[in-house]
Design a protein around this nucleic acid. Structure first.
Length: 564
RNA sequence: UGCCCCGUAGUGUAAUUGGCAACACGUCUGACUCUGGAUCAGAAGACUUCAGGUUCGACCCCUGACGGGGCAGCCA
């Protein structure tokens, strides 16, 4: 983005284009619009777990603070006690930290500003710009007007300042029941923008707040509170999503009437990803109705889900960089995200051989055992090598042998040869089947001149397959994840329920896969590449001291599988 | 129906602010390879939604259409 701003000498570098928000900030800096440092914020409501769309926002906001040497605040927008919980606060803090959002020590809460907001409300009442309204919810809706008709003024619109002050104080003191009164801004009931038709600033809610307890029984609405929160924190650029565009005139109105520090609200398009849903409501439903195994189910598009699945914060940050920021709503191909994680893991993940669907192979002319050298990461020599045990009884992948190969298949076939990775070339001499005609074992011979790295082999084989030595192999559980939904936009159809598109095969559990002993004792969260399969990580939830459980983060690209 | 926002290859973004459309992913070739991965080389793919207008020149400015999204919570 603007990372190169301070390095204009990098003339040879491709000039990274800036998104429109960086251009606005550049312009602001040029015109000296602000007499404070650039400040952004991420203002989640603690009513759910963060998802990849929030991650985009976190990367954007914290990235701006980083690039302009400003500040980035984490602020909980906790103005509605009915939906908010401490569990969500905790998870959000963890997720933002994990993503690398640098809020330093600033964990802020809108609820800490309630007193200040209250006095500002009184200021507005005194200016004759706000009034207590006795209309109930239904009546307010009925008098708000429609898309084409103006609303009707509330009969309470012209109460005196004194009466409003007194009523508002009584509201605060708990003298009225929920929903019986509201404090409204007096703006314009005929405005074509609904948000300006005397919007509600406070509602009565006798509900315990997760941080304020029972101190308050009136709570500020988003529109009233948000700009004040930003203003208090000297946020310069208040970045939010497109649906708040129509709220900006109101955001500005409150700040102007109060005459306080006035942040600039800027809207950008939220992230949509193919084959998943992003609305908190739908994600909550998936959790509550047990379609998934909690908010951090590896199939969930939540930050915690991606973390458990094995994604790295670097990959997610890079993804955010790749997709950019703009104002048109879009549906981003999940392939972009998968590219980001493969790109990262390819460079950093320890390689290891694992057999998911074992087929026994006996090497009839091999005696004894030996240990072979295997490279830990061909992309990074610094990661060194490891020893892999080899013997006359090994397991290979069932799919790496086929009796009647299609054209182009170049793995093991009857009478054919393949290379065992890091070991020898073997030849399939005999195929053993059970009563049902299923292949249960292969009897092969090996060529000792073909040992990996010996340089003595003159043979060329078309394929190399992975394997694991039977005696030393470690038994593990592997979970193969696929997309949660079967269609690109499960929530696109207004008539159809997104649940109808759930992918029944989104999680395949392989209880007994085999892996080389190297990974024994791996810690939860550890990431590996299972050669020729994909990237996997040790599950943090179901791994036990007896058995490692692995989640497949993402497959390797498979140009052969595609052609079939 | 009223108001607001948006329309650039399959996908996501760019275009030095009016100079003849670029990057990434994806797709397809070929090379290389002890991962059908990675890497390397290359290709295809966009009359910039449409129609007018301004201009020597328009993705960019103007007008109008069409298409998409948002707004009638005491949610955010």
């Amino acid at each position: 983005m603007a990372a190169d701003t301070k390095n204009p000498e990098n003339a040879n570098d491709i000039v990274k284009s800036k998104n429109f928000i960086y251009e606005i900030i550049d312009e602001d800096l040029k015109t000296k619009k602000w007499d404070v440092n650039i400040c952004t914020r991420f203002p989640p409501e603690p009513n759910g777990y963060l998802h990849i769309g929030h991650a985009k926002s976190i990367c954007l906001n914290s990235g701006i603070a980083r690039d302009y040497s400003g500040k980035f605040n984490l602020r909980f927008d906790d103005t509605n006690p009915e939906k908010e919980e401490q569990e969500y606060v905790d998870s959000i803090i963890e997720d933002v930290k994990w993503l690398g959002g640098n809020f330093e020590d600033r964990i802020l809460y809108a609820s800490d500003y309630f007193d200040k907001m209250y006095t500002w409300a009184i200021d507005l009442i005194k200016k004759g710009k706000a009034y207590v309204c006795d209309l109930n919810a239904d009546e307010i809706r009925e008098t708000r007007g429609t898309l084409t008709e103006p609303g009707k003024p509330s009969p309470y619109r012209n109460r005196s300042v004194e009466e409003n002050l007194s009523l508002f104080e009584k509201m605060r003191n708990g003298e009225f029941p929920d929903g019986s009164k509201t404090l409204r801004a007096k703006i314009d009931m005929a405005s074509p923008n609904f948000n300006l038709r005397d919007p509600i600033m406070y509602r009565i809610l006798h509900d315990e707040h997760h941080r304020q307890g029972n101190k308050w029984c009136i709570y500020p609405t988003y529109d009233w509170a948000h700009g004040l929160e930003d203003s208090i924190e000297n946020v310069t650029h208040s970045i939010c999503t497109l649906e708040f565009e129509n709220h900006r005139p109101l955001y500005d109105w409150f700040l102007n009437e109060l005459g306080i520090f006035h942040p600039q609200q800027i809207e950008f398009a939220r992230l949509n990803l193919t084959y998943t849903v992003m609305s908190k409501r739908k994600l909550l439903q998936l959790v509550k109705e047990n379609y998934v195994d909690g908010w951090d189910d590896p199939r969930m598009p939540t930050v915690s889900g991606f973390r458990r699945r094995g994604y790295t914060p670097e990959a997610i940050r890079n993804f955010a960089e790749i997709i950019g920021v703009a104002k048109r709503d879009a549906l981003t191909d999940i392939a972009l995200l998968e590219y980001a994680i493969r790109d990262d893991l390819n460079k950093h993940a320890q390689r290891v051989m694992a057999v998911l669907h074992p087929l026994k192979v006996t090497i009839t002319n091999y005696n004894g055992e030996e240990v072979l050298d295997a490279v830990n990461n061909p992309e990074d020599a610094g990661m060194g090598s490891r020893k892999v045990p080899f013997s006359n009884e090994i397991f290979i992948e069932q799919s790496d042998f086929i009796e009647n190969p299609p054209k182009g298949y170049h793995r093991l076939i009857p009478g054919g040869e393949v290379r065992l990775r890091y070991a020898y070339i073997i030849k399939c001499e005999e195929v053993i089947k059970n009563e049902k005609g299923e292949v249960v074992e292969l009897r092969c011979t090996y060529d000792k001149e073909t040992k990996s790295g010996s340089g003595t082999s003159t043979k060329k084989v078309k394929g190399t397959i992975h394997w694991v030595s039977a005696k030393q192999a470690l038994n593990i559980e592997v979970r193969l994840y696929d997309r949660l939904f079967t269609v690109e936009a499960p929530d696109a159809g207004k008539e159809k329920n997104f649940l109808d598109f759930l992918n029944p095969g989104s999680c395949e559990i392989i209880p007994n896969a085999l892996v080389e002993p190297f990974i024994k004792g791996s810690k939860p969260g550890a990431r590996f590449q299972f050669e020729r399969h994909g990237y996997f990580c040790v599950d943090t939830k179901y791994t036990t001291s007896e058995k490692l459980v692995f989640n497949r983060t993402v497959t390797l690209k498979d140009s052969w599988g595609k052609t079939k």
